[in-house]
Amino acid sequence: MSASIAVLRAEARLLTRESGSIFWIVAFPTLLVTGLGLVPSFRAPDPDLGGLRLVDLYVPVAALLAVMMAGSQAMPPVLASYREHGILRRMSTTPVRPLTLLAAQILLHSAAALGSSILVIAVGRLFFGVSLPGHLPGYAVALVLATLAAMALGATVAALAPNTKVCTTVDTIIFFPMMISAGVWGPVQVLPELARRVVEFTPFGAAAQALDQAMRGGWPDWSLLGVTVAWAAVLIGAAARWFRWQ
């Protein structure tokens, strides 16, 4: 068995033992959609939303929430604690490089987030009649780019935080603007024009708009995808530049 596979398998087992992470990444977004879907007014078509219902808008938002939870909430404290407790250092005295451990964490949290997104879409479709994304490839591209940006953001926070405690605090602080921009606290579509334009320059605001467009059946605007990619690129660069192994 190759070393990378062994690391991936061990970290996968460890992730399944983190019941908090599993709840917030996999269960919470679906519970949110279910909870909102049970409210009658959320199931009423709204002319202001182009005839869509609120629950229709919340399915892509919940998918994005899973991605943000995984990348910016669940993963960074794990990475910070692996450094703080000398786990990366111990690994760097073996033939395997500690980068393998980081890669496994990013891969597993991405997989959990994307799995959760699929669950959200399935529950929305089966129980609340939310139509599947109108432009599936566009939706998939927007979601994968959002995942990349979320993982890069998480890695950057873990890189810059001196210890696990600071890391968790920073995560909590950045999560609020992320949720607002992604539309978790209310659809961005109802915001005034100026606020919408600002939100479209944030990584998850742009991703939320792109998902919304793909949901409605069109290929997302290149400018929105471009914003998410640009954030991902900058954050990957920052994480690679500042991550300390010990």
């Binding site: 407790h85 000398g86 250092r89 111990r90």
Partner: peptide
């Protein structure tokens, strides 16, 4: 060829 036991290091707590 070199095995190491470090002064202060841990493993993943749930491993």
């Amino acid at each position: 060829i070199l095995g190491v036991q470090l002064q202060e290091s841990e493993l993943q707590p749930k491993l």
